[in-house]
């Protein structure tokens, strides 16, 4: 019995030592990875989000019923006008007058699209009625 207890104790000590080494290794790895992550991070991070969003779009859009493909175009049209945010930042934060003018024009065009796109989609969808309603 004491034999087994002794061996168990040994194993426990070994495990503790291993864990300690693993921790040191992990810290080293983290330290090594940090500069690389700092360089690649902004673009890779954005790319990750972009690709995941592509997949979400892919699966969501395949579920759209073909009867509603025109409203789909209308609503995606309006959604892509979220580019208005870029224009807003240009008007609101730029110190350069030319940049502000471009921002102003971008906001104007995108606004046509936001209002027009959502309203026309709403108009289309409000016409789709089931039998008897």
């Amino acid at each position: 019995m004491s034999d087994i207890a002794q061996r168990a104790g040994e194993i426990a000590r070994e495990a503790a030592a291993l864990a300690e080494r693993a921790q040191v290794l992990a810290l080293e790895a983290a330290a090594a990875a940090q500069p690389a992550a700092a360089v690649a991070e902004p673009f890779l991070f954005l790319l990750t989000i972009f690709l995941l969003a592509c997949f979400v779009g892919y699966y969501v859009v395949w579920n759209v019923t073909p009867a509603l493909h025109s409203p789909l175009m209308g609503v995606t049209n309006a959604i892509s006008s979220v580019i208005v945010v870029g224009g807003l930042l240009a008007v609101g934060l730029a110190e350069d007058a030319i940049a502000q003018v471009f921002g102003f024009l971008a906001v104007l065009l995108a606004s046509v699209n936001i209002f027009g796109g959502f309203l026309v989609t709403h108009r289309m969808l409000s016409m789709f009625r089931r039998k008897g309603s």
Partner: peptide
């Protein structure tokens, strides 16, 4: 990020 997500959705559609 929001622009990227919205753009990707529309692009995929």
């Amino acid at each position: 990020l929001m622009l990227i997500i919205a753009g990707a959705l529309v692009g995929a559609a």
